[in-house]
Design a protein around this nucleic acid. Structure first.
Length: 767
DNA sequence: ACACACTCAGTGCTTTCGGTTCGAT
DNA sequence: AAGCACTGAGTGTGT
């Protein structure tokens, strides 16, 4: 089918597509059109990565807009939301407006209602529904990207419930679901009353294979010599081979440590092959990486990048990730060794993909567990860049002949697992039952069960009673914690949310987190300390646990007894194995947050807790959100302590001691600048407006532009630094200048080491 | 001849991917 | 279970 034959799209769009070189639709796209995707029909498209799924979505949304409607595009990751927005903005010149809504980006508001296309994460959509955004009801088309994630126990139920709600709100809603190739796409299609487009067609060929010995065995039965020279590893041999062919490689491994070690080694393989020009450009990328953060992770990454290799995992700061992804797309970096983050994230195709590790440690299973076929296929699907490579090659690595056979059976020739709803589990239902009741979707037990009948779980369940049973357990739990009221028994029993329940639902808290916070705040004796509050939020299920390593157990047990008085609520007994363990790991997180709020340098925090800069940011972000929620709960319940909670939140947010809160609130002033201004005698925003310019300039290390911005942001009339000379004023020693009680010799010996260029980046609030 | 760098084998030991959500600026 | 980190012995290189 030709693009020229498409009808029902906004004027100019077909011309645009042709100008983009899209003359002919790919077969799955043509199938989707035949299935009525441009006529408002529901369609489920189960096709491989990079086979033109996005165009199917665009055709659906644009034709719907053409008929006067609006569209919502649901993605699983924030990074994907901005990527998709950028793609859809190509249609703005044809009068189609695009907006994004994620947790950290341009929140709700009426302006979203004015957009033709809104891109949002599934949680954000859920949250918008809970908060009663009315424009949601006027949607004419919804697209769910990566819909196979419904299989994910953690986040899948949100997507599932959200789709069910949108469809209930608006029975005429066109639903388009895009999925990777899965074992049971027909189940999803049936659930959504949709036509199914199920295809394995790819625009460029993907060859899958296994490397063993000195040969690459491919799924078409051929094999090729691929020699492992001397002491190099198989992965290095594949990378070298690809490089000789002018291509780049993506290597997937099973842990962050492995990713870093592999990048270090692969840099040695790649470095000799680089041109001088490439070395120069890589050196400047490395410099940018070092600018992002001072940590060892950052330094290791920069060092690898200088050799043309990089690692990629969630411990990296988001700026790190973007730099690495861009340099790889620009073909500057020849290899990335990554954890699975990269397979799910933004588009980074590569000539070759190596899946080095196919087992991953799983504590609950007590050892290494094989990866899902779907996951391995997702990684393999990154091989081959459309329009650039003749074909892609995805390679597993075997170290024995038996393993060679096993890998072929298990992954190369195997079909992916079916998608199974994980809705009927307490943690998932806890939050969604409360939300469903609080928003008035269901007013009785019967209505609740009716609504749940509309989910994928119900449509594929072999155990129909299970949902009902778990729902009753959850209602029981919610009632016990005063989130809902029930009247009567059986199907007619009315259920409605209490005021507290409404607040919890609106705040998007897991009810169990809310219960923990409420109990904790009620147990406070006196004024809660920052550590106590950090511990409180760190032990809720909404904060991911920091892993306890060897030696940590003793250290934090000791700390736990030392500061027991600060922790809110009763400390579990050491004999309650699991509970005590969780308590300690929350304490470790709380300690990290406390360090951050006491101005311990990022690199020291990273080292002390064995985390990367990205982890610190993540923890700080989550703590901010939960403390904000805690403040509102305190307010709602009238238990007091709002001021203490707010202060603790602001201190993690800015990463400063309480005496710096006022200064750090000025835009352009992060934790480091605030400290230097304070030490120079400028202690508040008001003083900043009146201060001697020379002193300000001196404290900001002679950076005129920075100083002018800061003064302007503080509300000073005459911010100009013309003719001002920096004045150095000795820091006031002692008192409060080192909030970190445990005197750190390195801090004093070289107070400014590594922060020569801290322009703006010292504050986490920036992004 | 010697210091130093590097490789390699062997041992022990640690290991455990990812991530959204508020509200205001 | 497996790869990494570490150790120490052995080898190679340059002065």
């Amino acid at each position: 089918m030709k693009t020229a034959d498409l009808s029902g799209l906004p004027p100019g769009v077909t011309d645009y597509l042709q100008a983009e070189g899209i003359e002919e639709l790919y077969p799955p796209q043509a199938e989707a059109v035949e299935a009525g995707v441009t006529d408002g029909e529901n369609v489920v498209a189960s096709v491989p990565t990079a086979s033109g799924k996005t165009l199917i979505a665009e055709l659906a949304m644009l034709s719907s807009i053409r008929r006067g409607g609006t569209a919502l595009y649901i993605v699983p990751l924030r990074a994907l939301a901005s990527e998709k927005k950028a793609e859809f903005e190509a249609f703005e010149e044809y009068g189609v407006s695009v907006g994004v809504s994620t947790g950290n980006y341009e929140s709700d508001g009426d302006w979203l209602a004015t957009k033709d296309i809104v891109v949002a994460t599934s949680e954000k959509v859920d949250s918008l529904v809970r908060n009663g955004a009315t424009w949601i009801e006027d949607l004419s088309c919804v697209v769910a990207d990566e819909v196979h994630l419904i299989d994910d126990a953690g986040r899948g139920p949100t997507l599932e419930v959200t789709l069910a709600k949108l469809r209930q709100l608006n029975p005429d809603l066109q639903t388009v679901a895009l999925s990777a190739t899965v074992g049971n796409a027909e189940d999803i299609a049936e659930w959504l009353d949709a036509e199914l487009v199920d295809s394995t067609w790819r625009p460029i060929d993907l060859k899958k294979g296994v490397h063993y010995g000195n040969a690459l065995h491919l799924d078409d039965g051929t094999q090729r010599e691929l020699e492992v020279r001397g002491s190099e590893k198989q992965t290095a041999a594949v990378v070298r081979d690809t490089l000789e062919d002018g291509g780049s490689t993506l290597v997937f491994v099973n842990s962050r440590r492995n990713a870093e070690a592999a990048a270090r080694r692969l840099a040695d393989t790649v470095e000799p092959e680089l041109t001088d020009e490439e070395r120069d450009e890589l050196a400047s990328v490395a410099a940018e990486i070092r600018d992002v953060s001072d940590t060892e992770t950052s330094e290791d990454l920069a060092a690898a990048v200088e050799g043309g290799a990089a690692f990629h995992h969630a411990g990296l700061a988001s700026d790190h990730r973007a730099l690495v992804e861009d340099a790889f797309r620009d073909r500057l970096l020849k290899v990335i060794s990554a954890t699975p983050t990269l397979a799910a994230g933004v588009n980074t195709p590569s000539r070759r993909v190596v899946v080095r590790d196919w087992r991953r440690y799983d504590g609950t299973a007590g050892g290494m567990q094989p990866l899902d076929v779907l996951e391995v296929h997702q990684m393999m699907g990154r091989a081959g860049r459309p329009g650039m490579d003749p074909y892609g090659e995805a390679v597993l690595v075997a170290s024995s002949h038996d393993e060679l056979d096993e890998l072929f059976d298990r992954y190369v020739y195997a079909d992916p697992e079916p998608v199974r709803s994980k809705l009927a589990a307490e943690p998932a239902l806890r939050t969604h039952v409360l939300a469903t009741v609080a928003t008035g979707f269901a007013r009785s037990r019967g209505e609740l069960l009716d609504f749940l009948e509309r989910t994928l779980y119900a449509s594929q369940s072999a155990e129909p009673d299970r949902l009902e049973r778990v729902t009753d357990d959850v209602l029981e739990y919610l009632e016990r914690n005063e989130f809902v009221r029930r009247d009567g028994r059986g199907d007619d029993a009315t259920v409605d949310a209490t005021s507290l329940g409404h607040t919890v639902s609106r705040l998007y808290l897991d009810p169990m987190s809310a219960a923990e916070i409420v109990d904790g705040l009620r147990a406070v004796d006196g004024r809660p300390t920052a550590l106590g509050l950090y511990h409180l939020v760190a032990r809720t299920p909404d904060m991911y646990e920091l892993y306890l390593r060897s030696g940590d157990r003793e250290e934090y047990t000791e700390l736990c007894y030392e500061r027991e008085g600060e922790l809110l609520g009763p400390t579990p007994s050491e004999f309650e194995e699991g509970r005590f363990e969780d308590w300690l790991s929350a304490l470790k997180t709380a300690r990290l947050l406390e360090d951050w709020a006491e101005e311990v340098d990022e690199d020291r925090v990273a080292e002390r807790y064995g985390v990367g800069p990205g982890d610190i940011r993540g923890k700080v972000d989550t703590a901010e959100w939960l403390l904000n929620a805690a403040e509102q709960l305190a307010n709602e319940l009238d238990v007091g302590h709002e001021a203490a909670v707010r202060e603790a939140r602001k201190r993690v947010e800015y990463g400063v001691g309480d005496e710096l809160l006022d200064l750090a609130g000025v835009r352009g002033v992060g934790r480091k600048r605030a400290r230097r201004l304070y030490d120079a005698g400028v202690e508040t925003r008001a003083e900043l407006r009146e201060a001697d310019k020379g002193v300000v300039l001196g404290a900001l290390r002679g950076r005129r532009k920075t100083a002018e911005n800061v003064l302007e942001n503080a509300g000073r009339e005459d911010a100009s630094m013309d003719g001002v000379e920096p004045v150095e004023r000795a820091a006031a020693d002692g008192e409060g200048s080192d909030a970190d009680g445990g005197a750190e010799p390195t801090d004093d010996a070289e107070p400014d080491a590594g922060e020569a260029d801290d322009a703006g980046q010292a504050s986490l609030g920036d992004f």
